[in-house]
Design a protein around this nucleic acid. Structure first.
Lengths: 236, 236
DNA sequence: GGCAGCTAAATTGTATACGATTTTTTGCGT
DNA sequence: ACGCAAAAAATCGTATACAATTTAGCTGCC
């Protein structure tokens, strides 16, 4: 079993080629193989995937709707470079919606769901102890998948899609402003949340979730880095 | 002053022609000049706006991402026809996020904002008493603008965009499943919410908001209409 | 040496063209 | 008449082509 919680397209198939490209680029962004600010020219993307610029462009447009790339008129597309203010808004949004999602998920959670969550947690822990870039990237994804799975359990496809966007953008923010070496320190917190759900301590679970998000945010250094790339960079 | 709460593109200009088409079609959908299920072929859209299919397609793709149109592979784009279940999810999402938005908005609201909200309310009331399709459509939009303006006041652009999507899709749902003749009965409820905010009765304001959403939802008749278009339609 | 202005290269914006898939129409047989 | 099969029309998926804009490089002048 590969990447779990992806849901994929149960439909007849991969609707159009652009979707695949979009997904591939998104994955690369979320796993931080593409750094914020990297230029994604339509021709390059097209060549890379052996498709025409038309499809490349469509994929980039789609990613722009999700806030993962920003397209500037007549200048091109770049991996999004969230400002500190954007970063704050992203986490404010998560604090706003995740407790609600948690409540809805708890209301309809099944033993099978809990088992799956635990499995995810185990995987996450295993990756944490492993070495290497590959493991690190997988860990980043697994950490987000926990939140995504809760959204999936909640049964609300709209909130699920919204959470996918928020988690992806969070990854960008952490890549930019994160300080701690550990990609997502709060591994144990995930476990605590599951435990609280199992014990029907709903309010406590929400509290834990809020703390968890706060912890992630506390690890950020949200200060305007004005690139300082000219004189200042050599003045020290 | 025209449609208020639109924010528009403060940037240098209308980024690309596709955006304009997208906005025009979205407005038509939200104002219910386009009914759910209406086919939007790329050629027709292109001809209508005197642009190539390329731009028409881009606009439709964008609308598809917002959930306002659904594109079916090799079949075309249609104005979205939300299922009863989708409708429930849309309103569940609103119940989930709107109280939170309200809280954030209340925390940073200014007297000027309140004045604007009141103005919006006045306009809404004026339209309610007016006759004619045009007034009806303007009323629909004004009713949504109240919720949108709260999101704008909250200062969170992400939540604002999300609310824009939810409000637009709500309009589709109401068009499909709404029963009452009044487009949005709860006009007075908007006023009550503002009053509660002014009096710093935050919890009450949230309660009112939840009731307001519940009222809108209560006006829906969410039952699978299976088109019953052949025999059944004449058998009664 | 440095800067203004112009020219050329690269990149995006939009249109058109062609192949693939679906839908409709036509026509035949029963 | 009815149903079914094959052809025709319409529509979407993708590629290519051309125009417009930006960026980089260069020349010449100060």
């Amino acid at each position: 079993m590969k990447s779990a919680a992806k849901a994929a397209q149960a439909e007849d198939s991969a609707e159009t080629g652009a979707q695949q490209i979009r997904d591939a680029i998104r994955e690369a962004i979320v796993e931080r193989r593409l750094s914020p600010g990297t230029k994604l020219s339509e021709s390059d993307v097209g060549n890379l995937f052996n498709v025409s610029r038309t499809l490349a462009r469509a994929a980039l447009q789609a990613l722009s709707y999700e806030g993962l790339v920003s397209v500037e008129k007549n200048r091109g597309a770049f991996v999004a470079y969230p400002s500190p203010d954007e970063a704050r808004q992203i986490f404010a949004a998560r604090r706003l919606v995740e407790p609600g999602i948690l409540r809805e998920a708890a209301a309809r959670i099944t033993p099978g769901d809990i088992a799956q969550l635990r499995q995810l947690l185990l995987e996450e822990g295993r990756l944490m102890s492993e070495r290497g870039q590959t493991a690190r990237r997988a860990e980043i994804k697994a950490s987000g998948d926990f939140h995504l799975m809760l959204a999936e359990i909640s049964g609300n496809a709209i909130m699920q899609r919204f959470m996918e966007e928020l988690v992806a953008r969070s990854s960008l923010v952490i890549a930019l402003y994160g300080q701690s070496t550990a990609s997502s320190c709060g591994h144990s917190e995930h476990g605590d949340i599951i435990a609280a759900i199992e014990n029907d301590e709903l309010d406590r679970a929400c509290q834990l979730m809020l703390h968890h998000i706060a912890h992630i945010e506390a690890d950020l250094d949200l200060r305007e880095r004005k690139s300082l790339g000219l004189k200042e960079a050599f003045e020290l």
